[in-house]
Write a protein that binds this DNA or RNA. Sequence first.
RNA 1: GUGGGUGUAGCUCAGUCGGUUAGAGCAUCAGGUUGUGGUUCUGAGGGUCGUGGGUUCGAUCCCCAUCACUCACCCCA
Length: 402
Amino acid sequence: MINALRGMKDTLSPQSETYVYMIKTCSRIAEQYGFSFVETPILEETALFKRSVGESSDIVGKEMYQFIDKGENDVCLRPEGTAGVVRAFIQQKYDKAGEKKRFFYHGPMFRYERPQKGRLRQFHQFGAESFGESDVREDATIILMLKAMFEALGIGFTLEINSLGCPACMPQYRTTLVKFLETREGLCEDCERRKLTNPIRVLDCKNEHCKVLLADAPLIIDHLCVTCKEDFTTLKHILDQFDVAYVVNPKLVRGLDYYSKTAFEFVSNEIGAQSAIAGGGRYDRLVEFLDGKATPAVGFAMGIERLMELVKMPETRREGYYIAALCDEAKEIVFKLVDEKRKTEKVLTSYASKSLQNHLKAADKLYVKFCVCIGEDELAKQSVWIKDLESKEEKIINMAHF
RNA sequence: GUGGGUGUAGCUCAGUCGGUUAGAGCAUCAGGUUGUGGUUCUGAGGGUCGUGGGUUCGAUCCCCAUCACUCACCCCA
């Protein structure tokens, strides 16, 4: 027997109904916020992710499904969605046009990790990216949009925000931080490495000893330039105004290298250790990094599998018809009626002729609203017997009027 | 990559201090005097007890390995 690969899952009913419901709900809301659907390839040139996500990240460093294709191209399955959308944005020359563009996407992402609760090798994200808008109100809007999505889906969350600074203040802070780190002895191996590659990430270290050593580390939030500081204040102000509860987490850094300024994370405490349900922020320099014309941008991604078990689905109601034969002679007309009715309704059937009791049981189980049967009596009178399984009303109507 | 837990019927799980034909509930299918469901009754089908090796007269049970699933670390959505 051949099984699905490790960390890869089939999604069947009823989970698939939840999946579809989530995509529909989030897509609708994204459209209301002016975003349009974009579909980009799952397979991309490896360089795209090395340059965008960053070689210092674990995602690129050790989690990519990377291989050489038959044309000798170094390619990989996308580990996240932003890079592809940015690439498409630049390839369409939207950067040069200078228009504001807003996109949303959803689909599979791939990371070669050890699977656990809320972490798969092939998982799905819903995300959105906004290009050309540098106003911090866009950052706030994206957070409000996410809030609207979670509310529509009945999902509770806590929101953490931070500012990572911009080219005007971040490098300076970085130097300050590195100097501080030089004074600390006994950081873990990972942190020693990060010190050189991406010192900001050291702050996010989960190692208890490191936490102690870093307790009084300088924080970016205290070293922001005037603009960044003002923007962060505006963001907090808007969130207050719209009753979005949040906590400022000065040690919140995004795992991907391209973020700057606003960074945020939506967290749930109901789904195990992998508690981040959505994350995002501003990445004003990424378009440039990928050879486009400098374009401010902000976006987010949410993990669909992590949210699936939190979604509160609307109540399902009985729906559609079950049409079946009580005797072999009725089979032919039943088959015809089924096909006819399917032009306008959901119709289920049985190819076997069985007792009324059996058909009622089957219809009930399939959770349809109407059970329709045709037997000897109905054939003789050219009628159908129909029962509403909710109201229990039943009647016999002319076949032509069914 | 590292560590813990678990692998018995389609599903959820019992069980054998190592002993002959391995059980239950749910689900499925067939019936309950010839046309009335969701909460009835009866019966049936369905298992190489994850795989390979070892110990033993004998292993589903003990030991080793392996694979899978799962949770956590790490990382991240």
